[in-house]
Simulated scan of single mutants.
Amino acid sequence: MAAGAACAHARPGWALAALAALGLLLAARAAARLALWLHAAFLRPARPLRRRYGAWAVVTGATDGIGRAIAFRLAAAGLGLVLVGRSPERLAAVSAEVEKRHPGAEVRTFVLDFAADGLAASVGALGELVRGLDVGVLVNNAVACYPYALPRGLNVEAITRVTHAVLPGMVERGRGAVVNMGSGASAILPCDPLYTVYAATKTYIDQFSRCLYVEYRSKGIDIQRQ
């Protein structure tokens, strides 16, 4: 009886030790992932984009915010730019500023409103514009924005069509990179009530990017969601 009682009291100790070990393992894994992210974000040397991927970059939603900032960084890296946006005036202003900050930079603009009718034809025209260019980087940043919950999946159609227009050229050249802008609505928040379609489209971008990466990495093309 005494031995049996001792064993019964020993089991909780083993269980606690196992749980503690599992907790340490998970904590170590999380710390390692954080360290890798910090290294990639702040310490890892930048890749030579022009030599690694190609001479030109296509940036949608390039007149404001993230897209505009990315355009300037790509120009600083020596890439020519195809800036895509819905406002001719803003495109002209950004183009002029890029050329002022980076003398000799090549900049082309293309007016495209992703919320307008005839999206397929407009993106097809964009594809024709870049067909003869050595496009090494595509940044899918543009979205259709409204002051209320997104009524339809325009984000899905826009990113899919633009990628479909630019990706074949990368495949032919055997190199390229596609960066798709995601959202915390799909990556961090467990749900986003009243913005259901918006969150769902951003989840689509996550899986779209993951699956394309697997499909095209053997062809020399990097694809990621930011």
Rank of each mutant, 00 (worst) to 15 (best):
L26V: 14
N141A: 03
F114S: 04
A158C: 12
A96I: 09
R175K: 09
V179I: 10
A3I: 13
V179F: 04
R51E: 15
V130C: 12
Q207P: 06
G220T: 13
A105C: 11
P103R: 10
R68G: 04
P193A: 11
T163C: 07
N155H: 15
W14E: 15
V135L: 10
F208Y: 09
L24E: 11
S183T: 01
A28L: 14
A62S: 14
C7L: 04
A142F: 01
V156R: 11
R50C: 01
A105V: 04
I70D: 00
P45M: 07
A185T: 09
D222R: 04
A35I: 08
A28G: 14
V59H: 05
G78K: 12
A177G: 04
E172C: 07
L16D: 11
V111E: 04
G65C: 11
D134I: 14
R152E: 09
L138E: 06
V82W: 05
R161G: 10
S87L: 10
C211K: 08
L49P: 03
S87N: 14
Y195S: 15
G67R: 02
Y195R: 14
L26E: 14
R90K: 07
T160G: 08
D113W: 06
G174V: 11
Y195D: 15
C191E: 15
L189A: 15
N180F: 06
I70T: 05
Q207S: 07
G61E: 05
A75P: 09
A200R: 00
G118Q: 09
L167V: 13
T63W: 02
N180M: 06
A62M: 05
R210M: 13
G118R: 00
G136V: 02
A41W: 05
L43K: 00
V178C: 06
T63L: 00
I205G: 01
F208R: 01
A31I: 07
P103T: 03
P103V: 08
T201F: 03
V59G: 03
G85Q: 03
K202G: 03
R101P: 05
L189I: 07
D113T: 01
F208A: 00
L81D: 01
E99S: 08
V84Y: 03
C191W: 13
R173P: 00
W37D: 11
E128N: 13
A144G: 13
A105R: 07
H39W: 15
A5N: 10
A40L: 12
A21N: 08
A96Y: 01
D64T: 07
R108V: 02
A46W: 06
Q226M: 13
A15Y: 02
N140A: 10
G176F: 07
R44L: 11
A187C: 11
L79C: 02
M1P: 06
Y53F: 15
L112F: 00
W56I: 06
I188F: 09
F114Y: 08
Y198R: 06
A121P: 08
A27S: 02
E128G: 14
R52N: 09
I205N: 08
A32F: 08
Q226Y: 10
G176K: 06
A31H: 05
D113M: 08
A149S: 08
L154G: 03
L22V: 13
D206R: 00
G184E: 03
R225K: 11
R50T: 09
A177Q: 02
